[in-house]
Amino acid sequence: MADALTADPRSLSAKRPGAIILARHGEPALSRDVVLTAVGYREFWAKYEAGGLRPGQAPPAALMDQIAAAGAVISSVRTRSVESAVALCRGRDFVRDEMFVEAPLPPPNWPGFVKLAPRTWGFLARFWWWFFDHHEGGETRRQAEARADQAASRIEALAADGRDVVVLAHGFFNFMVGRALRRRGWKMTANQGWKYWSTRRYERP
């Protein structure tokens, strides 16, 4: 009883969880300097999903330091994410997890005379998928949201011991995982936007 009365109150409370850093992969090798039909964009996206990083990139030093200090590092199984993790981890182990792959991007079925840049097709495909449930037999928004919630639960458990967790994955699915974390009470404390190698940091208040 005396020990309990004289102990530092902070040692009796639950340990504060570590931060969760959701990072986007580096720049892919596949050029976006093209214009495509809807059919062409489907082929482009398939190549994008299978491809790796553009050679010669220098990962941000700040992100490398965050990974060096983290208790756990997770990568999507897509090549561009795995290669990003290899470049950032500098020999340390990381986990490859298919749960963190990007949400699908089937474009709307517009006629062949409509030709757009991949970035524009990506925006339209995401809009159609998000608001009109255009999935063409693939993962639906509801299914992806359930996957994002499961992913949030997994990394929340890893952060419970007080060590940071870094996830190297994809722009939109990271956004969805971030929404799931906020629903669980996490607060986004830093946001570098949508660019390659960018991060979003979440902490428990």
Rank of each mutant, 00 (worst) to 15 (best):
W128F: 15
W129D: 02
A38R: 05
F44D: 01
V39D: 11
W129P: 07
A87H: 09
L12S: 02
K47G: 13
A58P: 03
W121L: 13
R80T: 00
E102P: 08
H25S: 14
T120A: 15
R16F: 04
P111C: 08
Q66E: 07
P106A: 03
V114A: 13
C89I: 03
G51C: 13
P111A: 06
P118M: 01
R96A: 12
K115L: 03
P111T: 12
L53M: 05
Y48D: 03
A72Y: 00
W110I: 07
S75M: 09
M99W: 05
V73A: 00
S75P: 03
R42V: 11
L88R: 13
A38F: 13
R80W: 01
P111S: 08
V77S: 04
E43G: 10
V73W: 00
E102N: 09
P106K: 09
R96L: 10
P111V: 10
P107E: 00
P111R: 15
S13T: 13
L88S: 12
L105W: 00
E49T: 11
S84Y: 07
P107T: 01
L88E: 09
F94S: 12
V114N: 06
R24K: 15
S84E: 04
S84G: 09
R92E: 10
I21A: 03
G112I: 08
F127M: 10
W130H: 14
E83V: 15
F100W: 15
F94Y: 11
R80I: 01
R126Q: 10
A125P: 02
D97G: 04
A85L: 01
A50W: 03
R16L: 04
E49R: 11
E43H: 07
A68K: 14
A14D: 12
A14Q: 06
E49L: 11
R80E: 02
L116F: 02
E98W: 10
L53E: 03
R119V: 05
A125S: 00
E98Q: 05
K115S: 04
R119A: 03
F44E: 03
G56P: 05
G18V: 01
R24W: 15
R78Q: 14
F113D: 05
R92M: 10
T79I: 13
E83G: 11
L53I: 06
G91Y: 14
G18A: 06
W45H: 07
G52K: 01
E102C: 14
S76E: 00
I67W: 02
R54Y: 12
R92F: 13
V77K: 02
V101L: 08
L105T: 06
D97C: 01
G122Q: 07
P28S: 08
I74G: 01
A103N: 01
F113G: 07
G52Y: 03
G26K: 05
G122R: 02
